[in-house]
């Protein structure tokens, strides 16, 4: 007769806990890493190679123009630019990050190059 029966309040309790969990979850960080498609990665790699090449050639051309060293620095920096481009490709492909420095785990977002 006098047995405890908490079931009427159990529903409420559960709902309250749920609401609190939802609120706490909203405060925490969401893992919103965008899906990265292979196509996006491939296009981005191409763009990064080209950008590095443009910069390399540009620097070489400017130095040549400044120092009057003919086409040699441009050729040298073309090679360096290619190397930088390949480095970017390597880093992007191994998911090491977007740019300078070996920094792991920052490759986010699918991109169209």
């Amino acid at each position: 007769m006098s047995e405890r029966d908490p079931s009427p309040s159990k529903g409420f309790e559960a709902r309250l806990a749920e609401a609190r969990a939802v609120r706490d979850g909203e405060r925490g960080t969401k893992d919103g890493a965008a899906a990265r498609s292979g196509m996006g990665v491939a296009l981005r790699i191409g763009l990064e190679m080209v950008s590095a090449l443009i910069v390399g050639v540009g620097i070489g051309w400017l130095l040549d123009w400044w120092l009057g060293t003919g086409p040699w620095l441009m050729i040298l920096f073309f090679v360096l630019g290619s190397a930088a481009g390949m480095l970017s490709v390597f880093r992007t492909a191994s998911g090491l990050g977007q740019g300078v420095g070996y920094k792991p785990g920052k490759g986010k977002g699918s991109e169209r190059g």
Binding site: L47, A52, I54, V55, F77, L80, A84, L87, G99, V100
Partner: peptide
Amino acid sequence: IPIEIISYLSRPIS
């Protein structure tokens, strides 16, 4: 160092 500088400078271009 030149490679990394080129890499860094290519950021705004890409």
